[in-house]
Nucleic acid binder design. Structure first.
Length: 364
DNA sequence: AGGTTCTTAGTTAAGGGCAT
DNA sequence: ATGCCCTTAACTAAGAACCT
């Protein structure tokens, strides 16, 4: 209630907007978007922004009262720079206006309050902002064209379009990642490890190497049933080292059994859930379907292509194939390691059958 | 002088390969 | 089957440099 704008405050707001505009090209004031920021870009990643925002005492969040960098800094016990980083980000989203003395905008105040209690509602507000702000449109369009963008490319685009003088590649990445995380947060694309994708990582060339057996996969899925788990908890439960486990989980993801909704947390997909509940026979069938529908299908196709009339499949031939398809150089021992896992999958799903001195594909 | 923007160093997480 | 070590990459916080 108390942050409702009164007549007088609108006047105040207008004044601050003018300050904002005055430091760039004058003129062009006929522009309807009077409160669109000029020259600011998100700097903090969305997670960090939210984290700091939540610490700011509510009394500072007002579209009536100005605040200063110093005031916030001492209120929450962080450096001026940190607050400035936050303010720059908030300005880039039209959540804050002003210079030296700042004021929340209506959406900015709403967002800052809601983020504490109702993340989805806050998201909605931010999503609206991304629709209004030009550089987001630029990135979105670029993303639609290319399907995926690295954070470096996003940064580069900003330099090109808006004449920023960022020269350090790390700087480009910083800004690029900030923009990418915001789009991800608001539901436009998915950001992960330096790349913003339009589609949830569709396994293309880069599916993980087969790290684990079917049995281990099922064990993991059992542990994830029904509600998912934090990686720490899961690791403790299974007695598998965390780093190792995250690799194994990435395999389960590539198979479509497991989902990774947020950092550190994994859960079963619908199909994953079904499989853990299925009987052995049904489970085999479902597993096979997933294998054939996954990126690993390509390996099976290759296997089929390269096999001559009475060639046998052995750990050696399979290892060589994997090495080639993944474009790596492995030692013999490593090749064997991965070949064993993959063979385990093929055997389990009945794609290969045992013959004298090796395996062969079952003709289907 | 004080405020703001860009860079950077140090830290943490993820990924990859090997060996037991 | 899986623990461990090493490399690479991302994140964060804050300092340096630049404005006004």
């Amino acid at each position: 209630m108390h942050w409702q704008l009164s007549e007088r405050n609108w006047a105040q707001r207008a004044k601050m907007d003018e300050w904002d505009r005055s430091d760039t090209t004058m003129g062009a004031n006929t522009n309807i978007n009077t409160n669109t920021n000029t020259g600011y870009f998100p700097y903090l990643r969305i997670g960090k922004m939210n984290e700091i925002l939540k610490q700011i005492p509510l009394q500072y969040i007002s579209v009536v009262n100005e605040f200063s960098t110093r005031g916030i800094a001492s209120a929450i016990g962080v450096s001026m720079t940190t607050v400035n980083n936050l303010i720059a980000t908030m300005k880039s989203l039209d959540f804050v206006v002003g210079r030296r003395r700042f004021l929340f905008t209506r959406p900015g105040a709403d967002y800052s309050v809601l983020i504490r209690t109702d993340e989805d509602a806050a998201k909605k507000i931010l999503e609206e902002q991304t629709k209004k702000i030009e550089y987001f449109a630029v990135v979105k369009q670029e993303l639609i064209q290319k399907g995926e963008l690295t954070i470096f490319e996003i940064g580069e685009e900003m330099v090109k379009r808006y004449g920023k003088n960022w020269t350090n590649p790390l700087t480009l990445k910083t800004y690029g990642a900030a923009i990418a995380t915001i789009l991800d947060f608001t539901g436009f694309g998915h950001y992960r490890s330096g790349i913003l994708r339009l589609e949830e990582e569709k396994e293309g060339m880069d599916i993980p190497v087969p790290y684990l057996s079917v049995e281990k996969m099922l064990k993991i899925m059992d542990a994830l049933f029904p509600g998912g788990s934090e990686i720490h908890k899961l690791a403790a439960e299974l007695g598998t080292e965390e780093r190792r486990l995250s690799q194994e989980l990435s395999c389960c993801r590539a198979m479509g059994f497991v989902r990774y909704p947020r950092r550190g947390f994994y859960e079963l997909t619908e199909d994953g859930r079904e499989i853990t509940r299925s009987s052995e026979g049904l489970r085999k069938k479902k597993f096979t379907n997933h294998l054939l529908g996954s990126g690993y299908k390509k390996l099976i196709d290759r296997l089929q292509q390269q096999l001559h009339a009475d060639d046998k499949i052995t750990l050696v031939t399979l290892g060589d194939l994997l090495e080639k398809e993944y474009n790596r150089q492995w030692s013999e021992i490593t090749k064997r390691t991965y070949a064993k896992k993959f063979l385990n999958w093929l055997r389990y799903s009945g794609i290969v059958v045992k013959v004298e001195g090796g395996y062969k594909l079952r003709v289907s």
